[in-house]
Nucleic acid binder design. Sequence first.
DNA 1: GTATTTAAATATGTCATACATACCAAAGTA
DNA 2: TACTTTGGTATGTATGACATATTTAAATAC
Lengths: 233, 233
Amino acid sequence: MSSSPLSKLRPINTLTQVDKIEASLQEYFREENLQPGDALPKEIEIAAAMGVSRTAVREALSRFKTLGIIEARKNRGMIIKSPDVFNNMERILHPNLLDKNTMQEIFEMRLVLEMGIGEILFLRKNNANLLKLEAIVEKEEKTADKEVKIQLDVEFHSMLYKISGNKTIQRFQKLLLPVFKYAVDRPIHAQHQLAPATASHRDLLNILKKGTPEEFRIIMREHLKNYFEYIKE
Amino acid sequence: MSSSPLSKLRPINTLTQVDKIEASLQEYFREENLQPGDALPKEIEIAAAMGVSRTAVREALSRFKTLGIIEARKNRGMIIKSPDVFNNMERILHPNLLDKNTMQEIFEMRLVLEMGIGEILFLRKNNANLLKLEAIVEKEEKTADKEVKIQLDVEFHSMLYKISGNKTIQRFQKLLLPVFKYAVDRPIHAQHQLAPATASHRDLLNILKKGTPEEFRIIMREHLKNYFEYIKE
DNA sequence: GTATTTAAATATGTCATACATACCAAAGTA
DNA sequence: TACTTTGGTATGTATGACATATTTAAATAC
């Protein structure tokens, strides 16, 4: 059997069968303009319509299930679902798996969020919120236990996100926490952390109570100074 | 074969077989402390070890593949992979699927990022970067075509993220773009968009060139003013 | 005629088996 | 030494069957 030199040229499309089925389904979703709650055809029907095995269809569907785009209720058929944006990220954001660079970038991202959250805080703050924040700060000032202090530090910043009233941002921050913690625990960073913050949580609280967004940003920048020094390197 | 009355009591966990296999595999990954690059047992071996069918194992593995935690190279076996944090989100962040509230929150999140990115820009900016930004601004000032203007607006902000040097943030922003666009196109928002920004891209560029992070934040706040008005409601 | 029970139909979940396919490695050939 | 061939291997795909839980409809009891 003679093979022409062209046979060396691999087809561009190295997609597997399941990949194609996945794409085809996605197109189907779009064309049908399917909305959450809408029902899907049965697996067998999909397989028949595409001329492939139920096995392959199931694997493609499995991907959508994993992503949270569809939900299969046993023996009841499948429906389109409104996916949880971060559900998947939670499952992969383990320090074990991420490379150092990505971790570093996520670390920075948290700083960016922290610096940018001020505007919304001033839009959404209220007395109840501020009291809770106050309680945390007071606890912080009273304790000497380092472990407790660290815990309260997390709580303070978490409360800020809560005050933002934006559950998506809140979720995202919670997601970043383990990565952030891991980064902070790295030896190279430990020394910076030791340096006392030049602006305290109390300062932030006071500004949030009686100051302006602009002042808040300045104090927050000061509060995070050590971290910004860190990422300079 | 006698079955006690207790056999009627169904186990609390309504987990499916595949769910259990997934959990079991996850535990295996953790216990073995598997790192990216490490090989997994063959599907058949896993199935045999767990006493289940290869089908079920494959479906559990398929989930991990979808999440990007493992990679299957045909006929070569599977290995642990360093997952791409946002790869999954890209696949679900379609305006069709997300509910209004989540979209609104993502919209806000983009504003937060935009407000917080300044610090890092001043850390990472350089002449080459600024020239590119300048080029975009000049094009903007010369064109009258509204479509082009919108496109250049996106490019300007995208370039800011690029200057941040943080590919994770950059990716995230790209991810948010369609959602943002969708939100902006909503009628209720259209009127706000029509109001001319009180601080231009040129202003931002000038500050980035010769100003301070603090000034930059103030101008950015001014630049996004209309959007902030919008989310107040 | 209403209410409860039973039974059938249904669609996903799981299993077993076989074959296809592409990659690697080792043996064979010029 | 360089190239080709060949075979083993593990994932990818197909087929067919049965399990199981839910829904719907039929059947029975009152």
